[in-house]
Nucleic acid binder design. Structure first.
Lengths: 213, 213
DNA sequence: CGCTAATCTAGAACAAGTTTCAGACTTGAT
DNA sequence: ATCAAGTCTGAAACTTGTTCTAGATTAGCG
């Protein structure tokens, strides 16, 4: 029988279908790797996360690093999952105060944006990885997307959204990601991102089953 | 005095401030390079565009290729500029037929989307490069963005848009790029992209100075 | 305990983007 | 026609992501 179970995509909750539980030491390794990844990313962004350095930093052989995360993009997307969970927890504690759903969503996203501004390099690494990811990372990217959707729906305060509302949420996510990229690459100001977020959030009112179209 | 002028960012119109004109042979080299890039990209997407192969394919030394395009991302973004010009020309010939501005924009974007579907690998290479570009490529990416904006404004049929309308256009572009990415990475269907585009285009009506909010 | 299969480690090796360099070639000016 | 300065070429070198290998370790089972 195997000694330590096969290591694969890890996820927050019960999403993973067949992920054998990790040993304590394995869980610890995984943590060390993610911590090193975030640390290096915080310094110099995407480029500063070098696999050899991550391995050394987390006291793990390069081959092992690749066993846990099959590519740099996988690693950074996993790092993002990790950070997103934090974020969601933090956001839950102080629900947004806006009157309308649109206001609350915009407020929540701006709060998240401010958090990202505190670690712009880390944001750079995570977002670039997310948009650069190819099909082999789809499951992980999808998980990030679901988590983001959950955060937005939370802010809207909706139990069961209509299809139109889900469309609006998807568009908001698109805008969120793309606006972040333009900000990170210095092509848009913080103010600009704020405007874009507020603009797209008006779509929510438009799809409100009571008042919208 | 210099023999052949310094090669730098090239742009469609008068945007470049100080780009000495290229020799005929230089212009020809540049063309060959872009053609090779598009050709390789059409085959296997981003990964298939290998600088050594582009150089060989376009009968240019590797060092020369790097003189014309300082990185793979620069090259692919330039390739996108090139393709966008084609596209804009093509789109101009058959203006969209929709009643409202929103309909016309959605129609135009869907037409562009269909064109991309014909060369999904090329689309992959260009879009991935665009979103992966860091600050050093900002001017070129910005040029692509301006060109895209021009296409959308064309479709709206607007001479001088209001700030609110420009915001809407920016959000539409965000959605357009991000939706393309989700499609390219297999996380969204063509139908899904269509819905997202149509959804975000409703923002236009919302900002119409006559009828909107 | 002692086995056995899987995991982990160290390090070499490979791949593709990027840089560098010496020498041949072009260009525009004199 | 000649020259100086800038370009192009071919090839090697360097960087960093990724793969591979042989041997040491570890985990669970009988």
């Amino acid at each position: 029988m195997p000694a330590e179970a096969k290591v694969e995509a890890r996820s927050a909750r019960s999403a993973a279908p067949a992920t054998p539980p990790l040993t304590e030491r394995q869980e610890a390794r995984r943590r060390r790797i993610l911590r090193a990844s975030a640390q290096l990313a915080s310094r110099g962004g995407f480029d500063a996360v070098q696999m050899r350095e991550v391995a050394e930093s987390s006291q793990v052989a390069l081959g092992t690093l690749y066993r846990y995360f099959p590519s740099k993009v996988h690693l950074l997307v996993a790092t993002m999952q990790d950070q997103l969970e934090h974020m969601h927890g933090t956001l839950r504690k102080k629900p947004p105060s806006g009157e309308t759903a649109a206001e609350r969503v915009a407020e929540t996203l701006m709060r998240a944006f401010r958090a990202l501004q505190r670690e712009p390099h880390l944001a750079d690494a995570m977002v670039r990885a997310l948009t650069f990811a190819d099909r082999s990372v789809s499951p992980e990217v999808d998980q990030v997307s679901r988590q983001t959707t959950a955060i937005i729906l939370d802010a809207m305060g909706l139990a069961d959204p209509t299809p139109a509302q889900l469309s609006a949420v998807r568009v908001i996510e698109h805008t969120w990601h793309s606006a972040l990229i333009t900000w990170l690459s210095g092509r848009a100001s913080i103010a600009q991102v704020k405007i874009d977020i507020e603009t797209v959030c008006r779509l929510i009112d438009l799809t409100d089953p009571d008042t919208g179209a």
